[in-house]
Design a binder for these strands. Sequence first.
DNA 1: CTAAAACCTCACGTCGATGTCAGAGGCAAG
DNA 2: CTTGCCTCTGACATCGACGTGAGGTTTTAG
Lengths: 126, 126
Amino acid sequence: MRIGELAERAGVSVRSLRYYEEQGLLTSTRSASGQRHYTDDEIERVTFIQRLYAAGLSSRTIAELLPCVESPSTENSDAALERMAQERDRLNDHIADLTRTREALDALMAAARAHRESLRPPVAAA
Amino acid sequence: MRIGELAERAGVSVRSLRYYEEQGLLTSTRSASGQRHYTDDEIERVTFIQRLYAAGLSSRTIAELLPCVESPSTENSDAALERMAQERDRLNDHIADLTRTREALDALMAAARAHRESLRPPVAAA
DNA sequence: CTAAAACCTCACGTCGATGTCAGAGGCAAG
DNA sequence: CTTGCCTCTGACATCGACGTGAGGTTTTAG
């Protein structure tokens, strides 16, 4: 498929796909006229890239991890696996932090609701 | 305390504190010469602001929520509470997404390790 | 009193993932 | 062949939370 179709099916912009290629996250075969062509597998790859971006990884970091995804355990595997564990730990810490923040928001909302109910007469719970 | 001390105790830069004030997230009393002064309470407020930034909220969104923190249930409380619930939900979704990503990373690491062990002779687990 | 350190207000620089525009070529349908 | 849509490269624009430096005042330590 060509770049437009991949973009639509993966739910990203054409611009982003070209950017991923520029960053070494994605490859494409070129037709004689220079147009990029992709296989269906690339859809999954793109969504995974998006997932890593959403997890706060940079292009450079993703580029370090993806070879490990492609071909498990080549030469780089040792370093890549360590890098991966490191990013997993960072992500884990981040999740814990966000969870605490969510709890803080919950507490604030509970306090606000309680305060409001202390003002209005306690009608049947809406 | 003055801005430098608050910055150090809250673990942020002086620049950030001025920026927060510019965005309406933080207030300060000014001395005759124009220097900012803060109370101990502001430390907690700043760390909470940082927490919200880490949760992916923008300055503008934080500015909408903080009044609700300051004085629970003023006039704005109804809209602010809804805004808060909305952000909590967004955060919740984000946490779920990150958790899935963490699981994906775990799976990848497990696969890489398994692949490696299938090559090297199964020595005693290091 | 004096020098160092902290503070003030602009205001421009940065970084990373994308948007967007320009100018040119490719490809299928009528 | 032409019309219209897709694609190409290249390059500048954007946005948000700061970093950083200039140029000047205030506070503090000796």
